[in-house]
Design a binder for these strands. Structure first.
Lengths: 352, 352
DNA sequence: CTGAAAGCGCTAACAG
DNA sequence: CTGTTAGCGCTTTCAG
């Protein structure tokens, strides 16, 4: 900028004014400055600019895994909103690791991001207190912050969604509904388990621990749990899977267990024959996923993009000075019947 | 930092030394400084730090769409490598818009990112020249830079992959193979079309323009093109789809045209019956996708994560001072037979 | 081992 | 309309 000023024969400040389109610069002078800028290939250093101005015009986003469709949709929505507000976006994946989440957040804070959107992996966010004190704002998405951390949060209605999915299966005659969930320490997994239990209770059905399998969405673990479930003396006739990954891996596991892939819905909306590969099981999955429509898999859909958009909107509201009380948004889920969740249980065999 | 220095009764520089673990500080002094840091909740401002040091320890990534699985995998790999090098990552989606690509890149450059990884939407990258001159490094991924821009690039073997996919269908007896590609202005689409043509030529088959449909991967457009293709007097018996989105939307379109969803591979590896929904068509898709295995869809797989990793590694090599000649990596693709690509054409009806 | 001074590139505040 | 001065928070350089 100094060089430009020298080249144009003006003061530093005049160059600054021109570069920022500030009013009150003689057109001729501005022209001279512009010429110098072009000649020297000058580009403003926004790093220095933000240092001076106090705001970095950047926000940080910590998600679980950028490669996961759920979080990448959320991320995309946040990006859109950020750009719309003239903000650049730092992204990082916590990999469901609390320490890594903290490191990322603190790294973003060290760069003095104006705000944060966090899908928390950990449950202790006391490390954020100094940052909050320093004026950094944060909005939590998909999961709430740990106890003792007051911050806005945008969630899906996990309990309601799981309840609806379970009730849907029960309404179609199922009395033995299994739940395949994520690790129970994960907020959404615990909430969905709660919804599942509530639906059972509402229908007067007993809660049977043997019908519940919580764990990571890994093929080996799901295969083992499914084998156990299906081999039991009183096996489930329906499955509620706790998230997108789990649903997909369950379909895969079932295909290998029953010896064929899950079948599609035939022409009509809801076929009355069993989709091959589900082995006669009914299935409702939490989270919509690509090709679920073709496969005829009934799901409880979240809207990850809306989750991200809402969180980002909220953050920018805060950054604009909104100092209202901490809020908690809960976005609705939507049950999409596609066949796999509308199948009745097989006729009851007599026992003995 | 001033406050900390005052509180600890030392000079500014001593605090700086402690914060950066620089050697040559009395243990007792360091302790006093640490105490002051904790008491005041001090956190170093990395923005100021990078301004002074010249390097921002951040890189910018411009992809087409963060919500697309292909680019989100690439993105995740870049992120991993960046973090490994102590770098933070700015992300932005160009949405296949050259102007937006440029704006994002220049915004990143204004923040003085150390380097860039770009999946270009545009074909004119002269706007980068001043940045290169200023020392910013860039690596292109998935697609090469426009003419006149010298930069490293990491690609998939698009020609070879498309050639292999087409040859695979021809080897299974098909002589009427259609190609459903992306917009021809997109580098990868053009390359894959070239591979398709090469395979035809190698097999002594004519290139029939009526068998080629290039355009955006949108349901309506694909439905129209497929309807036209299948309704022709000499319709194709096999399809090569030009990317993941197109494959998925083609499956969807075919399902709605033929009145049923595509069917799964049955127990054996390659069923000899037509997967329902493909209407007897054989299909090879460019790009692997979630559940392609269960649906039995043969694909030419790219490795987006490796694309990202390679590009990032290359960038950090450059940032470390490697000034070798500009390189062009081409990663291999892999044909994964799953059934849909191994179906023979239907017995030839006599015409007339 | 510690400190004072200068300055990274920019903008805010106040002159002229 | 233009310029000067100070300083954002840090590190570099050099001197104690």
């Amino acid at each position: 900028m100094n060089d430009v000023a020298a080249a144009a024969g003006v003061a530093l400040k005049t160059v600054s004014r021109v570069v920022n389109n500030e009013p009150g610069v003689n057109a001729a002078t501005a022209l001279r400055v512009h010429a110098a800028i072009d000649r020297l290939g000058y580009r403003r250093n926004d790093s220095a600019r933000t240092l001076r101005r106090g705001r970095t015009a950047s926000i940080g986003l910590v998600i679980e895994d950028a490669a996961d469709v759920f979080y990448s949709s959320l991320s995309r929505a946040v990006e859109e909103t950020a750009l719309h507000h003239g903000c650049l976006l730092f992204t990082g994946s916590s990999q469901e690791d609390a320490a890594r989440e903290r490191d990322l957040v603190l790294a973003f804070c060290a760069r003095r991001v104006d705000g944060l959107i966090i899908v928390p992996a950990g449950t202790d966010h006391t490390y954020l207190a100094p940052e909050f004190e320093a004026g950094t704002r944060a909005v939590f998405a998909d999961r709430p912050p740990g106890a003792g951390c007051e911050a806005d949060v945008v969630l899906s209605d996990n309990v309601g969604g799981a309840r609806a999915g379970t009730a849907h299966l029960i309404a179609h005659g199922h009395r033995r509904v299994a739940f395949l969930g994520d690790l129970p320490r994960i907020f959404t997994a615990a909430e969905r388990l709660r919804g599942y239990r509530e639906a059972l209770a509402a229908a007067g059905l007993p809660y049977d621990e043997d019908l519940v399998a919580m764990g990571p969405a890994e093929p080996a673990r799901l295969r083992a749990d499914l084998t156990r479930l299906l081999g039991a003396s009183d096996p489930p006739t329906a499955l509620l899977t706790g998230n997108g990954r789990t649903t997909v891996e369950t379909l895969r596991a079932l295909a290998s267990i029953t010896g064929s892939a899950p079948g599609p819905v035939t022409t009509g909306a809801f076929p009355d024959r069993a989709p091959p590969g589900l082995g006669g099981l009914a299935l409702v999955g939490f989270d919509d996923f690509e090709l679920a429509d073709l496969l005829g898999v009934t799901v409880v859909a979240q809207d990850p993009a809306r989750l991200g958009r809402t969180a980002a909107d909220l953050l920018f509201l805060r950054l604009a000075g909104d100092d209202g009380p901490v809020t908690r948004f809960e976005l609705p889920t939507r049950l999409i019947p596609r066949g796999s969740g509308e199948r009745p249980p097989p006729p009851r065999r007599d026992r003995g």
